[in-house]
Amino acid sequence: MNLVSIEARLQELGVTLPTPVKPVANYVPTVQTGNLVFISGQIPAGPNGPEFIGKLGADCDIETGRAAARLCAINLIAQLKGAVGDLEKVVRVVKLTGFVNSTGDFTDHPKVVNGASDFFVEVFGDKGRHSRSAMGVAGLPFGVAVEVEGIFEVA
């Protein structure tokens, strides 16, 4: 049984959730159907806009990519909280899909997306363990290094 609230765990990790980013195109940030919440892809955006610009295998190393993926995960949690109000309603992180802006010969996409996966386990414990896809892409919005989308089960 988890004795520490999710909000307290975030605080222990030094994370303050940002205000959820509003869509910049024709989509909604979250859709809930039944007990599943689907969250649109989140980029590594901070208070001053997109961060971690570049391609893995050219401009960014794996640790930079991991940091970008972690920031994507923070933004996913902010969207989730905005959608359901209380993070204690999270039953499970179901699935993440990570997109890595990378050169054609870069093959460490899973190591990069671990930045998000590891963060969800740090925050949610066993409820944070999830299925996942990690893939390389030729480009991402604003030239960011990583984008992550997620599916969450809530009570």
Rank of each mutant, 00 (worst) to 15 (best):
3 L>S: 04
6 I>S: 03
6 I>L: 05
13 L>P: 02
20 P>L: 14
21 V>G: 05
29 P>Q: 12
29 P>L: 09
32 Q>D: 02
33 T>M: 10
34 G>D: 14
34 G>N: 11
37 V>R: 02
37 V>D: 05
37 V>M: 11
39 I>A: 01
41 G>C: 07
44 P>M: 12
46 G>F: 06
47 P>I: 14
47 P>V: 14
48 N>T: 14
48 N>R: 13
50 P>M: 09
53 I>L: 09
58 A>R: 10
60 C>T: 06
63 E>I: 09
66 R>P: 01
69 A>C: 03
69 A>E: 04
70 R>V: 01
70 R>Q: 11
73 A>F: 00
75 N>V: 01
76 L>I: 08
77 I>Q: 01
79 Q>K: 05
79 Q>D: 13
81 K>E: 15
81 K>V: 01
89 K>N: 10
89 K>W: 01
90 V>I: 15
92 R>M: 07
94 V>A: 12
96 L>N: 05
96 L>C: 07
97 T>V: 13
99 F>H: 14
102 S>T: 09
102 S>R: 09
102 S>N: 11
104 G>C: 09
112 V>K: 12
115 G>P: 11
116 A>N: 12
117 S>Y: 13
117 S>L: 15
122 E>P: 02
123 V>P: 04
123 V>A: 10
129 R>I: 12
129 R>N: 06
130 H>E: 14
132 R>H: 08
133 S>N: 11
137 V>N: 08
138 A>E: 14
142 F>I: 03
142 F>M: 12
144 V>F: 02
146 V>G: 04
148 V>F: 02
151 I>Y: 02
151 I>K: 03
151 I>A: 03
152 F>E: 00
154 V>P: 00
